[in-house]
Amino acid sequence: MKIGIVVFPGSNCDHDAQHALSEILHTSAEFIWHQSPDLTGFDAVILPGGFAYGDYLRTGAIARFSPVMIAIARFVRCGGLVLGICNGFQILCEAGLLPGALMRNKGLRFVCRHLHIRVETTATPFTSAARPGQVLRVPIAHAEGNYVCDAATLAGLKHNNQIIFRYCTPDGRLNPATNPNGSLDAIAGICNRERNVMGMMPHPERAVEAALGSIDGLVVFRSLVQSLARQPAAAVS
């Protein structure tokens, strides 16, 4: 099993994601340069956090035209698992691989702190090791995490159980005061209809060992690794 971590100019959470996979979960994780047009040999792909292309124009707007994104679109069509974290979520939305968009935080500020998110569904390869309703303490670090989409898209997300994480109180209740960025419906993470692509604004890779203040993010990577172990590798490219 081998998981690829895409490196764009400006990615800065790529090593954290690799640390979570290789050091903590003892799973092979290799970097993929954004110019690579080929994902042969990879069983899943992570788009890490950072500021790809300096966030110029819009977050993710230039990164989505990288050669690797054409390969990722193909990978997704073949059922490959793709996880976008923070800037990776923004890139997946810009690329049209996830619905909606991430706008400037309602409070206009860059928000960097630990908070709580609730696992809204475990019926994804990225949350299958979690308990339904489990509350995770994980950090966010973004200025553009304010999820928006039109009413029809939101209705579709709800109907198809595509909302994976919502910002919540420490005991798992929804409360407007715990929404850090103005996200529609307190959305912190969603998946596509086919459930093989997930994007989330919080950083699970920064919550994988006690020294980091929380190990709650591990459940995302553990789910991914267990899902890959259960199913034969997706037919890639």
Partner: peptide, 8 residues
């Protein structure tokens, strides 16, 4: 295709 995100 580039300058605008049609979602927003």
């Amino acid at each position: 295709d580039v300058l605008t995100n049609p979602v927003i």
